[in-house]
Amino acid sequence: MVGPFEELRVIYVGAEAVVKLVEWRGLKLVAKVRVPKPYRRPEVDQQVRSERTIREARAMIRAKRAGVPCPAVIHLELSTSTIYMQYVEGESLRAVLASGAEDFSEIANGLGTAMALLHSTGLYHGDLVPANVIVQEGMTYLIDFGLAGRSDDVEEHAIDYHLLERSLTAGFPLIASKFMEKVREGYGSVLGDAAVSGLLRRVEEIRARGRYVERGEHQV
């Protein structure tokens, strides 16, 4: 028996999961529970929730092993689609930027470094937005690996970059480009400048797709 987990408070209610602070044998942990979605067919819902719970735990363990700052997985409960993990105290990057922080160089650089470490081990995050980065005393932790996966394909890594940049541009248009410049620096410090330019080339390609592209005769 692992339990009991004592619920202390709800940290965050997301679109997909409820994140709670719990206590287990005197230790503070985070429980991430994927909630059923009434709009999905039960079979689809079951598929989505269990696939993502397993994938998330697996990705976190691999990321941790590669030295990516992220919470450690403590326990998995598949019957309720729950992951118990280390509690990382701090503020989300979104909150930090929203509060008007001007000195974000170190944070952005650290985020680029974390991203590069993640990619270097063949993982992608899949939802790399400011709300999924925790800043703790200048350190940047990646959280929410719910859409993460394994791939050495630069495509997936480029999507991480693309998502981050787009969500910064949407949420913080005035600082986005400066922030991303520092992210690239951090990324390059781990994987080298060639990796950065390779990544950016693919980002451009991705942006050129996914639109109303004129495809000659077969636009259905």
Partner: peptide
């Protein structure tokens, strides 16, 4: 019958 499909969601993409 629902046959499982790959469901690729990345962020809001």
């Amino acid at each position: 019958k629902y046959i499982p499909m790959p469901m690729r969601v990345k962020g809001m993409d």
